[in-house]
Amino acid sequence: MLMCRDLAMIASDYIDGELGTAGKLSVKMHLMMCGNCRTFIGNLRASTELMKAHTSGTVDEEFVRRIDERVAEALEAKERGKGNT
C-alpha cells in the first residue's frame, strides 16, 4: 500500500500526468483517504503555479538593452555591407 512518504516521492510525476495507470490509481486511492496528502498535493501544485506566474514575466531590462544594442549594430553593419557590394 502507498504510504504518505511514497506519495511525496512521486507527487511531481502525478501533477504532470507522468504516472502510469496503476501509479495514478494508487495515488488517487491514497488521496481519497488522506487529508494531509490532499493538502500536500494541492500546495505542491499551487507553489508550482506560483513559480510559473512569477518567472513567466521576468525580464532583465539591462540585459535585454545590451542585446538590443548589439543586434542593432550587427543589422546596421549588414546593411552597410550590402550597400558596398
Partner: peptide
C-alpha cells in the same frame, strides 16, 4: 512508518496571481 509526522498545516488557497 512513512506517515506524516509534521503534515502541511495551511492550504495555499489563494490564486497564484493574488499571491504574486
Amino acid at each position: 512508518s512513512g506517515r506524516w509526522e509534521i503534515p502541511p498545516k495551511l492550504r495555499f488557497d489563494e490564486s497564484a496571481d493574488t499571491l504574486m
